[in-house]
Amino acid sequence: MSFTIKKHGEVCVVDVDGQLIVGNRQELKQKVLDELERGERRFLVDFSQTGYIDSSGLGVLVSLAKKVRESGGEFRLSSLNDDLRTLFELTKLDTLFQIATSRDAGLAAF
C-alpha cells in the first residue's frame, strides 16, 4: 500500500496503490493537505491500482474534496474499476465527485 503524488502540469495526480482503509487514510489525507498548503489547487486521485476502499477511505475523500473546494480548488477522481464504481454508486458518492473513466480523461477535464 502506498500513495504517490506527481505533478502533471498544473494537476497533482495521487496514485492509490493497494487499499484505502482505516489503517492508512490519514497518510493520504496528510499528503494532500501538505500539497494544498504548498499552494496546489488541482488534484486528481487515480484508483487504477487500488483494491478496495472502506468507509474511512470514502470519508477522507469527502473531507479532502470539501477542503480543496473551500480553498478554491478542484478535486477529482479517476479509473474506478467495476467494484469501486459500485461502491460509489451504493453510497451515492458518485453524485458528489466528478469521476473520470481514465487518468488521461481526468487530466483533460481540468
Partner: peptide, 22 residues
C-alpha cells in the same frame, strides 16, 4: 441513511450501512 442529501458530505457514518448493503 448516509446516502441522503443531508448526510452525503459527512466524513463518517457509512460503516454499518456498507455492512448491511454488502
Amino acid at each position: 441513511d448516509p446516502t441522503g442529501p443531508e448526510h452525503l458530505e459527512r466524513e463518517d457514518g457509512r460503516g454499518l450501512f456498507l455492512m448491511r448493503t454488502l
